[in-house]
């Protein structure tokens, strides 16, 4: 069971690196969508007795993170009619090196954290830390609003991975609330992206510089 789960987490960590290296917006959105689906099915591997609530959360996560949110982003991208090439502030090779270095550091650091015996052999904690770091690199290092949203989603995915540690102890209702908030959040972001596009005729966040001291 653990090996299957670790395989999925490993795949998700690999997707982090692809996200850091992708130079085109559609492929970045695809990576985020694939990662969301991978994460969505993980509760099925962690839990042995499947309740209807668990299945509902799995369906909602796969649907939300894997289909709805990416569809919203694609729609925003088409509506904004922006160039597909990402202009990085932090170049692709430095981002990749940072991401890979962060991943190694995450694996090393998580060895020193006290974990319950049943979590000790899992990659959940390093996977979470690596995704959070990837999310931050994308948030800081990309200029298009939509690619920053993708960074935010990968950050959220990392936190979701960490939350899986608690899946047996926290009521699923909490998870459902969290998921709802995230989805609504991205929806709101999508609307604002649309408005920024109309107001500034661009989604380049470097143009958002009127307000400063």
């Amino acid at each position: 069971m653990n090996t299957h789960l670790n395989l999925l987490i490993g795949l998700a960590m690999g997707l982090n690196l692809i996200a850091l290296g992708s130079s085109r917006l559609p492929s970045l959105i695809l990576v985020v969508s694939a990662q969301g689906m991978l994460l969505g099915v993980m509760p099925l591997l962690l839990e042995h007795d499947w309740s209807w609530m668990l299945l509902a959360v799995v369906v909602a996560t796969v649907g939300g993170k894997g289909l709805v949110i990416p569809a919203l982003l694609r729609r925003a991208m088409r509506a904004a009619n922006i160039e597909r090439e990402l202009e990085p502030l932090i170049g692709f090779v430095p981002s990749l090196l940072l991401g890979a270095g962060g991943m190694i550091a995450a694996v090393a650091f998580s060895q020193s954290l006290p974990l319950l015996p049943e979590h000790a052999g899992l990659l959940l904690v390093p996977g979470a830390m690596a995704s959070i770091l990837t999310g931050f690199i994308l948030l800081i290092g990309r200029v298009k609003a939509i690619s920053q949203v993708c960074g935010y989603l990968i950050l959220e995915n990392g936190i979701y991975l960490f939350g899986l540690l608690l899946i047996r102890s926290t009521p699923l209702m909490v998870e459902a609330g969290v998921l709802l908030d995230v989805t609504v959040g991205v929806f709101v972001i999508g609307i604002i992206v649309d408005r920024i596009q109309r107001a500034f005729d661009s989604l380049d966040t470097r143009k958002l510089t009127v307000l400063h001291e």
Binding site: I132, L139, A145, Q148, Y152, L155, E156, G158, I159, F162, G163, V178, G185, V188, I189, I192, R195, I196, A199, F200, T205, L208, V210, L211
Partner: peptide, 20 residues
């Protein structure tokens, strides 16, 4: 809109960290 975008991005990241 510029202010809203910054609010969402900074506030969203902060709130994500508090979830973690």
């Amino acid at each position: 809109f510029e202010a809203t975008w910054k609010y969402l991005l900074v506030g969203g990241t902060g709130i994500a960290l508090s979830l973690l």
